[in-house]
Design a protein around this nucleic acid. Structure first.
Length: 206
DNA sequence: CATGGGATTGACT
DNA sequence: GTCAATCCCATGC
């Protein structure tokens, strides 16, 4: 799989977040199509970059097209794609995937942590779940999303672009009103809470 | 150096 | 619906 060029990420983070819906994430043979994202930017307080350049946020302020992986709640590794020009702290959080390859390996990894057989819709329906399923860890922080080991590539040939629902971001306490969450409509692999169809906005690409 | 707060998940009531 | 797990790091003394 060829990765998306750095220029794809060197754009306003809201555009990248919307356009990543339908793109493919791959790690060591396991892969899925992105069905949910959120945008974060240094100018709003929910972003880690809001506090400025620190050791933690160094990757966020670095070159676009790299992976920002950090630990959440002391437990989960969360995957982001760094966006906008170098020096601007902005990234897209990858929140859910529709599994497409390596499902056996993903099921094995998730089942080991759950202590029971994981169902298909439980594999990648959440930002912590998808990194577990793909085996992505903090070691992948600040690696190139074009070269790997974590790669993001274009839409699969057979992927039908669904409407993209726009809603508010999940699990934050500040800047809660910004509609910076993007979800593929009517997709089983979107995480909870799923945006209500009919109340959420709809975004077109382009 | 001590403290506190998470871009979450899963188990439990 | 509630709540603990568990760790990185920003902040303040």
């Amino acid at each position: 799989m060829s990765g998306l060029p750095a220029a794809f990420y060197d754009r306003p983070v809201l555009e990248v977040a919307r356009d990543l819906i339908g793109c493919t994430v791959e790690h060591r043979g396991a892969a899925g199509v992105i069905v949910e994202t959120e945008a974060y930017h240094q100018q709003e307080p929910a972003s880690h970059a809001y506090v400025g350049l620190t050791p933690r946020t160094r990757t966020l302020f670095g070159a676009p097209g790299r992976a920002y992986v950090y630990r959440s709640y002391g437990v989960h590794a969360l995957l982001n794609a760094v966006c906008e020009p170098e020096g601007v702290g902005a990234a897209v959080l990858i929140r859910a995937l529709e599994p497409t390859a390596g499902i056996k390996e993903m099921t094995a990894r998730r089942s080991a942590l759950l202590g029971r057989e994981a169902r298909e819709y439980e594999l990648c329906s959440g930002p912590g779940r998808l990194t577990q399923a793909l085996g992505i860890s903090l070691e992948e922080n600040d690696t190139d999303l074009r070269l790997g080991p974590v790669r993001i590539g274009p839409r699969p040939e057979d992927w039908q672009d669904p409407p993209v629902l726009v809603g508010t971001r999940v699990g934050i306490t500040r800047a809660v009103d910004l509609q910076w969450r993007f979800c593929a409509a009517q997709n089983r692999h979107v995480s909870r809470p799923r945006p209500a169809e009919g109340t959420a906005g709809v975004s077109r690409r382009g």
